[in-house]
Nucleic acid binder design. Structure first.
Lengths: 213, 213
DNA sequence: CGATTGGGATACCGATCAGTATCTTGCATA
DNA sequence: TATGCAAGATACTGATCGGTATCCCAATCG
């Protein structure tokens, strides 16, 4: 492929993304607080000045990295209304495990949350919380209707459910960060499935046997 | 009460504990990293020199605080073998909520865990993890036997169960730190109860209903 | 081809902080 | 009462880091 002559704008964008990548990697490896602008610049063979040419402050850089990497956990499994709740949760649990194996994204997110938490930065906390919840809220929206339609009786109302899913994900991610060996996929999956409550609660006549697979 | 003449040793111990208390409070409020030795000293009307008279380094001070305040969550409810598992978990869940209201202890512990995580300090991570698990291991030890005796069928084996309890506690604590309003005690209690895998919250042990499996 | 411009380097500032060395002072003991 | 010692104050060092001002140089453009 013929390398077109590189314009200034292209060059600038290249370094900008290089900075973002390097920053993200260092944030994950060493934590946000412990990562200096200098370290980021040095990693890609530049100096501090270059970074400040693309980002006005460390704060802005952090926000840009967050923006770029904070793709929330994939909640697609949760939205598959064709499956019973327990199975959707199981899929979601496995998705979380997979994400943990791929590591960086979730870990980065956790790092951000830690930084936010450690700094007691209310504003950030709200942004992150909202970012987390955007995806989960979709789920909450269909949650009640679908459960009614399916005659499933989860132990939580929608808002509680979203909160508890959040609790579960946070717990798993943190536990993984501190002691990966203690988490095995089947257990995590079961953990999420339990949030559905007991499908065979004898309050409803059921036609399908949900315990199948 | 007769004021016994205060010896030097007593005085020294007093300031030492004062330092520990102040440090703990500031760690919780502002985070460990963001708390300077000076700030700790100033808070109790002393100066940095005084702190270094009692603790060789900030690292040692942090360790001492951790030592003093890392009393693990009260697992007594879990050990009440006279109750069915679900109830024990419900009690435990309420205990966690209560601890969150009282805040400092659990939050402090969380701070330490985060600090450890952020610093990628393996050694510390192991210490904390073990500290956490000491209490839970007691529970694990009686877990299997009691369940057999009660004909209860929790969805996890003992080791998994301990891990998942840990996950649940971490999740709840972190969620609380980031968004206290999203957690209400009944939901948290239900969340823990679900870990028992038995929705029917019996008030007394019953003869086991034969179940498919 | 020469002027301009902007990406990046360099050097520096000010603040913060851990840690140290040294002095002061008041209490305990002889 | 005299004195020695230790608790704590004070002042300083060295290092780090975020941020800024300024300079350099090569790519762009008239």
């Amino acid at each position: 492929m013929p390398r077109r002559p590189i314009t200034r704008a292209e060059r600038k964008l290249e370094t900008k993304t290089a900075i973002l990548d390097a920053a993200a990697r260092l944030f994950v490896r060493n934590g946000i607080e412990a990562t200096s602008i200098d370290a980021i610049a040095t990693r890609i063979g530049l100096t501090k000045g270059a970074v400040y040419g693309s980002f006005a402050s460390k704060q802005k850089l952090i926000e840009a990295v967050a923006e770029r990497y904070s793709a929330p956990a994939d909640v697609a499994p949760l939205l598959r209304a064709d499956l019973p709740l327990a199975e959707r949760l199981g899929l979601f649990g496995r998705g979380v495990c997979a994400a943990l194996q791929g590591a960086s994204r979730l870990q980065l997110l956790l790092d951000f949350e830690y930084a936010v938490y450690a700094r007691r930065n209310k504003q950030w906390a709200r942004r992150i919380r909202e970012g987390d919840n955007i995806a989960l809220r979709q789920f909450a929206a269909q949650f009640h209707a679908v459960n009614i339609a399916r005659h499933e009786r989860p132990p939580f109302v929608a808002s509680e459910f979203v909160a508890m899913l959040s609790v579960a994900v946070r717990g798993v991610v943190q536990q993984f960060a501190l002691d990966p060996a203690s988490l095995r996929e089947p257990a995590v999956e079961k953990f999420f499935v339990l949030l559905a409550g007991q499908p065979e609660h004898p309050t409803r006549p059921r036609t399908p046997r949900p315990r199948s697979r």
